[in-house]
């Protein structure tokens, strides 16, 4: 599914990723944990193709295709989905318009017919109900005036509509209370399937109680410094990141 080899990247001349390796197979859930400033969010942005994140070495392939050569929109159309830590607000552009544009673009790339407006409205309502967002949120500006939890649920709804093969959740737990966290985690779990993979980026172990990973990686100073099963997350929670940093020094 996703193969990252020796990935190095910098932002504004500062090296952030310093040779990262990871291999995600179909259906797997990988958690990436690490202290602040380790490069967790950078990894998500580099994979999603954000401007200003310059790859200096290494490779990243999705379904065997070189991800790093593609524009951001192309990556999304190929099945990559980044759930943002801080989804932006877009006043003046309705959620419905935005979702339709997004779904049409991705479906077109997959050779599928666009949904008719009627079909799409029905589908969008269904999904908004599934993530517990009132239907009138579809008429509002994208994320406009949404609470932190509502924004994350909106991300989840987009994920459901786009049916990506690789989902990267960037600190999806940040700013969520326990109830909202459960709603989001249930939504993610419902999307788990043998041909869909997840990279769950998080600072805290808490989220992993709900989204149980197959592998846990610790990212520190731009590299994976330790990998293990889900029990690694519990160890980290107990010992703190200084335990890892102490080991690597």
């Amino acid at each position: 599914m996703l193969t990252i080899k020796n990935l190095k990247a910098k932002v504004e001349d500062k090296d952030i990723l310093k040779g990262l390796n990871i291999d995600v197979k179909p259906g797997e859930v990988h958690a990436i944990m690490g202290p602040n400033g380790a490069g967790k969010s950078t990894l998500g942005y580099v994979l999603a193709g954000r401007d200003g994140y310059e790859v200096t070495d290494g490779s990243a392939e999705l379904h065997g295709e070189n991800l790093l050569d593609m524009d951001a929109e192309e990556r999304a159309r190929k099945g990559l989905f980044l759930a943002f830590q801080y989804p932006v607000e877009i006043p003046g552009v309705s959620n419905m318009e935005f979702l339709k544009a997004s779904v049409d673009a991705v479906r077109e790339a997959r050779g599928l017919e666009p949904y008719s407006s009627v079909e799409f409205i029905k589908l969008a309502r269904e999904k908004s109900k599934a993530v517990n967002l009132p239907a009138d949120f579809l008429k509002r500006g994208v994320n406009e005036g949404f609470s932190g939890g509502e924004k994350k649920r909106n991300e989840l709804m987009q994920m459901m509509l786009l049916e990506p093969s690789l989902c990267i959740l960037d600190e999806t737990d940040s700013g969520l209370d326990i109830d909202a966290l459960q709603v989001v985690a249930e939504g993610v779990n419902a999307l788990r399937s043998p041909d869909r993979s997840f990279i769950v980026v998080t600072h805290y172990q808490r989220l992993l109680d709900y989204i149980v990973p197959d592998y846990v990686h610790v990212l520190a100073d731009g590299k994976i410094v330790k990998s293990g099963g889900k029990e690694l997350a519990l160890e980290l929670e107990k010992e703190g990141y200084r335990w890892i940093e102490g080991e690597t020094v």
Partner: peptide, 10 residues
């Protein structure tokens, strides 16, 4: 970028 990350062309 948010649009692009959802597959919408620039």
């Amino acid at each position: 970028f948010y649009f692009q990350a959802r597959g919408i062309s620039k």
